[in-house]
Write a protein that binds this DNA or RNA. Structure first.
Length: 524
RNA sequence: GGCCCCUUCGUCUAGUGGUUUAGGACAUAUGGUUCUCAGCCAUAAAACAGGGGUUCGACUCCCCUAGGGGCUACCA
């Protein structure tokens, strides 16, 4: 075994979804391992029997896989230092705690939770420290044997030595704690399970972890862990404590802050590449310019030395921007299939959607692919719609910045119950003139041959000129009639993509509604 | 309360004693282009928490104060 091999780990507890704070910790560990040619270990810390769930375990595994953070050793992918789930390592914690007990570095404590609670509230009242007072520290040997034999519930506590404990944090430098500030903390709970501090140290040592990279909420636990290491004769790993990630209001991340789990970001439609890129930037920067990174470029550029010390607040705007950058760079095929999936997920694509009804053959719009099989089953719907969707995306251009906006920006291409902006209708569809113009324009579209973008524009401008009005006076009502919004891509392309049938239909409906609203006949 | 950590534009950050009138990005505002929007181009506003030192010189080093965060569980 090489002693220089770098081994890092991500050790989540399966008590909920993977938070973006945890995701960032996992990412930095992964990056460090990949950068140094080291090993990335995944370990599940499920010593809290009450809060750990199978569901959370799967959620975390899924999230890591989605982020592309593959581990070299861990659940699913076994390695030489397994098992990698703490509940399966019970014997080990037991033997290690026995060692400590035998050497007198730990002791049995029979205090009940009630006693401890009393101790604590008393200390609080006297405005004293709430540390354990050590009343079981020096129980007579036979007394201990007796209670143990009688199976009196007990825990194992660490016998805190005098002196001070220091360690050199890779990000924060030398940190010193006075041991008397730490108390005789619990190593083994009364159910026989190890506490976090104990299990983590034992596993880190047995798994040969060389660098512990984790959130800075663990900074205060570190001296305890160093002390356990020393008591057990383990080599002390190097530590790197990452700054915390805060909500946009700079308080601790919680449900109030909207999306905070990887799973939610995924559901909203962020690309995993984007989340990885954004998370990397939360607490780390390569230089004063570069902010677009792929996993590969991050591996090249990442360095623990450049990790910042101060907590970072999540900025949804910046995430959106980064996401847009990645979305923009997607190749066309990939983008089309991602958007198609999103359309399905969002249930925008109605079951049994038939492209030809919208812009299909015979409308002369040239959108359909002649190689497509007619009457295809639903599974083939994708293949059928693909060419049209590709053109929709091309026409949308950079207006569709990400997957997140698919619902809002693409619905009118796929269904008739797309959202309508009341303000837009009021502005462009409420006058008698607009109804009349829509009708005139629809009449022309009905007869237009060929029905392509160029002809659509030509006839629209022609009508405007004949009527002595600006083209915009035709364009705006038409846009609202077709899309329900006052913003859209190039309107002639939209008419073309929607097809003659749908376009004319929507324009006539809008004209009718407009007439109904004004309450009188607007015929010539 | 005790201990530990942190403090550059609204946000993420660059900056490691002089090259700085403190740079970039997001967001914001204004103008140009256009059928709207987006985009693109140009421009603007925006920060070294406060106070003491050290030094010829401090955003950079030290101390204090303030603010924020963490730990102080038989949670992790």
């Amino acid at each position: 075994m090489t002693h220089t091999q770098i081994r890092v780990r991500f050790a989540p507890s399966p008590t909920g979804h993977l938070h973006i704070g945890g995701a960032r910790t996992a990412l930095y560990n992964w990056l460090y391992a990949r950068k140094t040619g080291g090993v990335f270990v995944l370990r599940i810390e499920d010593t809290d029997a009450v809060r750990s769930t199978e569901e959370s375990y799967h959620a975390i595994i899924d999230a890591l896989e989605w982020l592309g953070l593959d581990w070299d050793e861990g659940p699913v992918k076994d390695g030489p230092f397994g098992p990698y789930v703490q509940s399966a390592r019970q014997v080990l914690y037991h033997t290690e705690s026995q060692k400590l007990l035998e050497q007198g570095m730990a002791y049995h404590c029979f205090c009940t939770p009630d006693e401890l609670e009393e101790m604590r509230s008393e200390a609080l009242q006297q405005r004293e420290s709430t540390r354990y007072d050590g009343r079981c520290r020096n129980l007579p040997r036979d007394e201990i044997e007796y209670r143990l034999a009688k199976k009196v519930p007990h825990v194992v506590r660490f016998r805190m030595p005098d002196g001070e404990t220091r360690f050199n944090d890779l990000i924060r430098g030398l940190i010193t704690f006075q041991n008397k500030e730490l108390d005789d903390f619990v190593l083994v709970k009364s159910d026989g399970k190890p506490t976090y501090n104990f299990a983590a140290v034992v596993d880190d040592a047995r798994m040969r972890i060389s660098h512990v990279i984790r959130g800075d909420d663990h900074l205060s636990n570190t001296p305890k862990q160093v002390l356990i290491c020393k008591a057990l004769g383990y080599a002390v790993p190097k530590f790197a404590h990452l700054p915390m990630i805060l909500g946009s209001d700079r308080t601790r991340l919680s449900k109030r802050h909207g999306a905070s789990s990887v799973q939610e970001f995924r559901r909203i439609g962020y690309l995993s590449d984007s989340l990885v890129n954004y998370l990397a930037l939360l607490g780390w920067a390569y230089d004063d310019k570069t902010e677009f990174f792929t996993r590969e470029s991050l591996i090249k550029k990442f360095s623990l030395k450049k990790v910042s010390k101060n907590p970072a607040a999540v900025d949804p705007n910046k995430l959106d921007h980064i996401d847009g950058e990645h979305f923009k760079r997607l190749d066309a095929i990939k983008r089309v299939s991602l958007v198609y999936e999103k359309l399905l997920e969002e249930k925008i694509l109605p079951a049994g959607f038939r492209p030809e009804e919208w812009a299909g053959r015979g409308t002369g719009n040239g959108v359909t692919d002649p190689t497509l099989r007619p009457g295809a089953a639903d599974e083939a719907a994708y293949r059928e719609e693909l060419p049209r969707l590709a053109i929709i995306l091309k026409v949308m251009g950079n207006r569709l910045k990400n997957l997140k906006d698919v619902r809002e920006k693409l619905a009118y291409f796929y269904r008739d119950d797309y959202p309508r902006d009341a303000e837009a209708s009021k502005t462009y569809l409420s006058s008698p003139e607009s109804a009349a113009r829509l009708t005139q324009l629809a009449d022309r579209f009905e007869k237009l041959e060929p029905f392509d973008r160029g002809e659509i524009e030509r006839t629209t401008r022609e009508l405007a000129e004949e009527e002595g009005i600006k083209a915009a006076d035709l364009i705006h009502p038409c846009r609202v009639a077709l899309t329900g919004q006052s913003v859209s891509p190039d309107i002639f392309s939209v008419v073309h993509l929607l097809g003659r049938k749908k376009s004319v239909e929507r324009m006539r409906t809008a004209a009718l509604e407009s007439t109904a609203h004004t309450g009188r006949d607007v015929g010539s």
